[in-house]
Amino acid sequence: MSIMTYNGGSIVAMTGKNCVAIACDKRFGIQGTALADNFQRIFQVGPHMFVGLPGLGTDTQTVYQKIRFRQNLYELKENRKMSPKVLLSMISNMLYERRFGPYFVEPMVVGLDPETAQPIVGNMDLIGCVNIPSDFVVGGPSSDQLYGMCETLWEPNLEPDDLFETIAQALVNACERNAVSGWGAVVHIIEQDKVTVRHVKTRMD
């Protein structure tokens, strides 16, 4: 029994052409028993920035609150918005403070840089080792399946509509081959002038 897969819930994020996407399933359970189909693991933390927190459900919520607290202090003190890269550094620093008694989450940040509008996706492990690739990041119990899907479906410079189709197919098909993921999905597409949230129907078993 791994604490990281105790409650289930998988997240994937991808870059596109002047856009980014992040998607997540909605299942919350305790090992094999499904308890809810409306669990939130993706949170909006800026006009063009989202954070995804796959892992233990209670730590998802605690870490989100701690992120908001530190982000609010930063934005009041600095009088400017936080950029995705700064947010990644901040969360990384926060998690490393608990190096020997960690929160069981592997945070993921997606967004458009406030200055350059450059699409950014990044993630880290539960003690804050950061990774900022140019293509996609995955997390949660179906990350193996997501790697297989993303590695074949993703291509550079996807337009927002194509990016939605790619990320939705990657997530839904990956979750279908994982017992602790599924029960509905939600996809966020972040563009410079708008953010689109789409709820995707999936099989409910």
Binding site: S142, D144, G148, N173, E176
Partner: peptide, 19 residues
């Protein structure tokens, strides 16, 4: 070793799942 990575992909590309 890559069974978990590829089975979901085959479901989608050969079984036309979720399309």
């Amino acid at each position: 070793s890559s069974g978990a990575l590829l089975q979901a992909l085959l479901d989608n590309q050969l079984g036309f799942k979720n399309q």
